[in-house]
Design a protein around this nucleic acid. Structure first.
Lengths: 218, 218
DNA sequence: GCAAAAACTTGATGTAGGTCAATTTTTTAA
DNA sequence: TTAAAAAATTGACCTACATCAAGTTTTTGC
């Protein structure tokens, strides 16, 4: 196995949906993937692309977002190492309808949709893992939708901070993105996020430190 | 095959994800399903239930919705005959977090999650079909989320009417639900929907008739 | 390390649409 | 068929948040 393949394998092996495979099976996938590297700010794909590729993040982070006709941005999701994305409607030739942009220097493994589909047919257990992951995302997306529709910005922000605290298993958290991106994710504006953060400080619920550090006191 | 089984089979055979199965395969599923009937307004399940069942609509319609803490409702989706729902995170024991309520007299086929999972392992092609369907839903949900976050109510309503027109393949449409439910679906209030409909009439873009009929002139 | 870019901050002002309330119309179910 | 319930309609008022603008601070990339 050459150096490039070793690199791919390292990528595949960290992906939750693949990580229970045997050595041999994993090598099978490795053959089908190629590796790509993007610099911060570079675009992986954008609406109109007809790619049906599966992207798996190896190192770095990728943000997935949409634009409205008047140019406003909605951040859909941020991919961390081990996460994947791509048009998973593997049968129908669908057009991409989101933007994907590297938030920092990012390395990905890429697989053609048709290969991935073949792979799922060979390993149904993986298909079910993928199904689980997509279902989880669907549930999250529907919850997000409901929150934007029903909750005030302050509530959404508080819920968001609580989730980050849970993810980071600490009441001292580092925001994983800029206030601008948080605003875009929560369906509001950077100014409002900033003001609401201040309100939470005034209410004694949080303290804000340098470089996106926040201590949750309530 | 007895009468009840025939009934089930009729149910299974209309579901897009199952309808390419052979006679024999279909009979295999039929054995695993039971039939349920609900009256208009009855609840199929609600948050807190730990059921992992798969529900397939045979006749009638079911609305899936969420409630915020302050009691406001967000309509997530309406299931028509052939549609399915259920916690598809088949592995992890997840708790239901939505309400499901029959919009009219509704007949469903029900399968236990564990049976369904076994089924997907046996027929990987069906797993991929389900994956396709869930991916499509995810895409729709993310689009919905972005629209609520970024677009004005008038735009959302116009897009909604356009989609209904496309679904019904006509510029004379019958709204599939009450203004109250449309409001809930679009993340606004019945009063606002009513006013925006009137504005569209004033602008000469639509005409409204009796019993939820609308003619789209623009 | 430094210049440029991006992110953050704060104030002033405007408005889309939410809320409340009361009436009329339509639908439902017995 | 009809009474009761639900849905639609309309008006008056209010507020959460967007928008615009103008600094200030932090981060980035060379």
């Amino acid at each position: 196995m050459n150096k490039r393949q070793t690199e791919h394998k390292r990528c595949i092996s960290i992906v939750p949906i693949f990580n229970h495979l045997t050595e041999e099976e994993m090598n099978g996938i490795v053959k089908e993937t190629t590796s790509l590297t993007y610099a911060r700010g570079e675009t992986l794909f954008h609406p109109g692309d007809v790619s049906s590729r599966l992207y798996i993040v190896h190192k770095g982070r990728v943000k997935i977002y949409r634009l409205s006709e008047n140019g406003k941005e909605q951040l859909v999701r941020v991919l961390e190492p081990g996460d994947f994305t791509g048009e998973l409607t593997l049968f129908n030739e669908t057009t991409v309808d989101t933007y994907a942009e590297a938030l920092e220097k990012t390395q990905l493994c890429v697989m053609e949709g048709v290969d991935f589909q073949q792979f799922l047919l060979t390993y149904p257990a993986i298909a079910i893992k993928v199904l689980n992951e997509i279902s989880r995302r669907l549930q999250q997306s529907e919850e997000q939708s409901a929150q934007i529709a029903l909750e005030k910005v302050e509530t959404r922000l508080a819920l968001y901070l609580a989730r980050i605290a849970e993810e980071q298993k600490s009441t001292t958290i580092t925001l994983p993105m800029s206030q601008k991106d948080i605003a875009s994710y929560l369906g509001t504006t950077p100014e409002t996020i900033n003001r609401k953060l201040n309100e939470l400080v005034d209410k004694g619920m949080i303290q804000v430190g340098k470089s996106r550090k926040i201590v949750i006191t309530d």
